[in-house]
Amino acid sequence: MEDSFLLFALVGFLAQIVDGALGMAYGVVSSSVLLSFGVTPAAASAAVHAAECFTTGASAASHVWHRNVNWRLFWALMPAGVLGGVLGAYLLTSFDAGFMRPIVAGYLGIMGLYILWRAYHYPDQYREHSRGFAGGLGVVGGFMDAAGGGGWGPVVSTGLLGTGGAPRPVIGTVNTAEFFLTLAVSVAFLGALLTGHWQSEDGLAGHGSAILGLIVGGLIAAPLAGYVIRVIPHRVLLVIVGLLICALSIYQTSRLL
C-alpha cells in the first residue's frame, strides 16, 4: 500500500505540474494510470474527480492570486462546463462511452498541429471569444471530462488557444473553472451511487491509497501553477501545449489499435 501511495503521489505531482502550467493533463494521466491498474472507467473517473476537488482548488487559488483569470471568460465557461460534466457523469454510469475516443483523438491531433502552426505564424495576435462559443466549448469539455476521466483541458484549452486565445488568461481561466466542474461531477457520481443508479462502486474500494497519493502529489504541485505561466513566454507556451496535445493524440490513438 505504501508503494502504491508513493507511486501515485509522484504521478499526481508530475501531472499537476503539467496541468497547472498548460491547462491539461492531470485527468488524462491519472485516469490512464488507474485504468492500467484494472480500475473500471467509471470508478477511475470518479477517483480522479475526487482527487481533483483538492488539486484544482489549490491550482485555482494560485491562478487567481497571480491574476491569470479572465472573469468574463470564466462566467461563460464555468456554468456550461458544470452542465456538460453532470450529463457526462450520468452517461458514464449508464453505459460504456468508449465510442467517443476516436473522435477525441482526431480532434486533439488536428488542434495540436494547428496550435504549433499558429505559434510560429501569429504568436502575438490574440482575440476575445464570444460567450456563445466559450459556453458551447465548455459544455463539450465538461461532458468529455466526466465521460472520459479527463478532457476538460484538452478540449477547452486547446479550442480556445487554437482559435486565438492568449495562453496565460486561457490557461488560468480554464484551470479556475475546472474546480467547479470537478465539484459538480463528483457530486453527480456520489448521487448516482447513493440512488443506486451506479452499481460499480466496488471499483474504488481497493484503491484508497492510490487516490490519496494523487491528492497529496497534486496539492504539492498546484501552488506553482500560477507562477509558472507568468514566467513562460506566450510563444513557448503555445509550442509546449501543441506538442503535448499531439502526444496525447498519439497516445489516445495507440489505445484504439
Rank of each mutant, 00 (worst) to 15 (best):
V228A: 11
W198P: 06
I232G: 07
Y114E: 10
L116A: 11
G138I: 06
V187E: 07
A221L: 13
A210F: 03
Q125F: 01
P167Y: 01
G149I: 06
V174F: 05
L137R: 09
G213S: 11
H129Q: 10
P223R: 09
A210V: 04
A192I: 00
A97W: 03
R127C: 02
I211G: 04
I211T: 05
G217Q: 08
A134L: 03
G142A: 07
I171M: 07
T173E: 10
A166T: 00
R131H: 13
G142W: 07
V187D: 02
A188H: 03
Y120C: 06
A210P: 01
P223C: 12
L181W: 05
Y122C: 02
S186T: 15
I171N: 09
A188D: 03
W117V: 04
H197N: 13
S200L: 14
P169L: 08
L116F: 09
V104N: 00
G196H: 14
G132F: 14
L204W: 04
L204T: 03
S157F: 00
V185A: 11
F143I: 08
G213P: 09
G213V: 11
G213A: 12
V231Q: 14
T163V: 00
V174E: 08
A146M: 07
M111S: 03
G159N: 11
W117L: 13
S200P: 09
V104L: 14
S130V: 09
L214C: 13
G142L: 04
A105M: 10
M144K: 00
Y114M: 15
Y107M: 10
Y107I: 04
W152C: 08
F143K: 02
F99C: 04
A222Y: 13
L190M: 12
D202Y: 09
G150V: 06
L224I: 12
H197L: 08
A134V: 09
G196K: 11
V139G: 01
L137A: 06
V139C: 02
Q199N: 15
G135W: 09
A188F: 03
I103G: 12
H121A: 08
I220E: 04
L190P: 02
I211A: 00
G150Q: 08
G136C: 03
G196N: 13
F179G: 02
I211F: 05
G196I: 04
G136K: 07
R101C: 05
P154L: 05
G109V: 14
F179V: 04
D202G: 00
G98S: 15
M144Y: 00
G136I: 00
I229Q: 15
A166K: 15
G136Y: 05
A105W: 08
G109N: 12
D124A: 13
L116N: 05
G217K: 04
D145P: 14
A221N: 11
L113D: 03
V185L: 09
Y227S: 14
A147N: 00
A119G: 02
G141D: 02
I232L: 15
G153S: 09
L193W: 11
G217D: 14
A119W: 06
I110E: 05
G218V: 02
T173P: 06
A146G: 09
H197Y: 11
L116W: 01
A210L: 10
G98Y: 01
S200Y: 10
A177R: 05
G141W: 03
L190N: 00
H129L: 05
Q125G: 00
G106H: 09
L181V: 15
L183W: 13
V174N: 03
L194C: 07
G150I: 05
L204P: 01
R101I: 08
